[in-house]
């Protein structure tokens, strides 16, 4: 073919330039078809290019990290890489690049060391070396997982760990902030209870009263934010988690309603169904040794010290 002959006549520099052009053409084609360009399609679109030049161009693009080489049922696929990946710029050996690539994929959830090992098929020692060097280059970092104390996940240096790893708003440095949760719990309940009390003064019927006593999670969030007890910004999901614990306490109930075209959760404080039940007004109700209580033995109703305290 004429084009190819001309290329080979002009010398290496010209080949390089033309290779660059070719690469750009290929890249443009890949960009047009983001799902990936089949090799055959590529061939068909530039019939004048010989396979060797094409291969060179593709290799060039690959090393620069501009496209990805993927395998599909129909053959090889070339995909334009859209992420601002820096694999190409890493000065490291192939193993490190591979490890980096795997970690990058996991984004802000991070990958467990075992997963990296499986995906990369590297030996543990090699893997450790790679990780160490990447860490020293400040490209990745390790984050301790909040769910299990020994689990460590790796992610890119600049990324913020996801809430599932750090526990989100409730954890600060791996410590569960139980006091914070408690305070939020109490404040939310107070807000809802105040609403309930206000609704009791309402004179326009029970339905009106019920509506007054209800609050959506957004309203509660607003109230809490205004109170300023939280250093970080809480999201609706966080408040809903707190409100759910109140539901589990039996102090609050939830209804779903359709408001402004979208489903919202409405919460209202409720009184408990029954007052303290009769059994628990006697010491025997809450007795820790009731299983041992009988007529014989040291634990019996006549010598019971709880009874004695209760009766005096």
């Amino acid at each position: 073919m004429a084009a190819v002959a001309s290329k080979s006549d002009q010398g290496p520099a010209k080949i390089k330039v033309e290779a660059n052009e070719l690469a750009e053409r290929i890249l443009a084609l890949c960009a047009e078809i983001p799902q990936g360009v089949n090799d055959k399609v590529l061939q068909a679109s530039m019939p004048e290019v010989d396979p060797k030049s094409r291969a060179l161009a593709i290799n060039h693009l690959l090393t620069n990290g501009k496209i990805d080489l993927l395998q599909s049922e129909r053959g090889l696929l070339y995909k334009a890489r859209t992420s601002t990946s820096q694999v190409g710029t890493i000065k490291g050996d192939a193993e490190e690049k591979l490890v980096y690539k795997i970690i990058e994929e996991a984004q802000n959830k991070g990958t467990w060391i075992r997963d990296i090992r499986i995906k990369s098929n590297l030996v543990q020692t090699q893997l450790n070396k790679a990780l160490k060097s990447l860490k020293s280059k400040k490209l990745i970092k390790d984050v301790k997982c909040v769910n299990s104390t020994r689990k460590i996940v790796y992610m890119l240096y600049h990324l913020e760990p996801d809430s599932s790893v750090t526990g989100g708003a409730w954890y600060s440095d791996q410590d569960f902030e139980s006091e914070f949760v408690e305070i939020l719990n109490q404040q939310c309940y107070r807000y809802l209870y105040q609403k309930l009390e206000k609704s009791r003064e309402c004179t326009s019927g029970p339905l009106m009263a019920k509506n007054i006593s209800q609050a959506s999670s957004k309203e509660v969030l607003q109230y809490i934010s205004e109170l300023g007890i939280s250093k970080i910004q809480l999201r609706p999901e966080d408040i809903e988690a707190i409100l759910d614990t109140l539901i589990f306490d039996g102090k609050v109930e939830k209804t779903l309603a359709l408001a402004e075209g979208e489903e919202t959760r409405l919460y209202r404080a409720v009184e408990s169904l029954i007052p303290v039940t009769g059994l628990m007004r006697m010491p025997c109700g809450g007795c820790p040794v009731i299983k041992e209580c009988s007529d014989v033995g040291s634990v019996n109703p006549i010598k019971c010290s709880y009874m004695k305290e209760w009766l005096s």
Binding site: R281, M282, P283, V289, S298, Y306
Partner: peptide, 11 residues
């Protein structure tokens, strides 16, 4: 024999 209890029962 009778471990200390957290709170006495309700009246």
């Amino acid at each position: 024999l009778y471990p200390a209890r957290l709170a006495p029962p309700c009246p």
